[in-house]
Amino acid sequence: MSHGDTATDPVDAPGARRVGGGRTGLGAWAELLRLPALFTVPGDALAGAAAVPATPGRRTALAIGSSLCLYEAGMALNDWADRDEDALERPHRPLPSGRIVPAAALTAACALTAAGLALARCAGRPAFRVAVPLAATVWAYDLGLKRTPGGPAAMAAARGLDVLLGAAATGGPIRPALAPAALLGSHTLAVTTVSRHETRGGSPLSGLAALVTTGALTRLLPRREAGAIAAGTPARPTGTLGAVLAAAYAATAARPYLHATLNPSPPLTQRAVGAGIRATIPLQAALAARSGAPVSALLTAALGPLAAKFARKVSVT
Rank of each mutant, 00 (worst) to 15 (best):
A302R: 13
P234Y: 08
A253S: 11
P53A: 04
A289N: 10
G207M: 03
R93V: 01
R18M: 07
G274I: 01
G202F: 09
I277C: 03
A210W: 08
L117F: 00
T269W: 00
E198W: 12
D82Q: 02
R271F: 00
F39R: 15
K313V: 04
A135M: 05
G124R: 11
A248S: 15
C69G: 08
V191L: 06
S206A: 15
T261I: 02
D5N: 12
R224Q: 14
P180V: 03
R200Q: 09
G172M: 08
A45M: 14
L164D: 13
T137N: 03
L143C: 10
Y141N: 07
A286Q: 13
A253D: 12
A293L: 07
A123V: 04
T240S: 15
R196K: 13
P256L: 04
L70T: 02
T238H: 13
V11L: 14
L164R: 04
G239D: 15
R196A: 10
A120G: 08
L77V: 01
G239T: 11
G242M: 10
S2P: 11
A246F: 00
M155N: 15
V314I: 14
M155H: 06
L306H: 14
H259K: 11
A156D: 13
T55F: 08
R175F: 01
A247M: 12
L211H: 08
R17L: 13
E89W: 08
I100M: 00
P133C: 04
P267F: 09
D82S: 07
G242Y: 01
A51H: 05
C122N: 09
T170M: 09
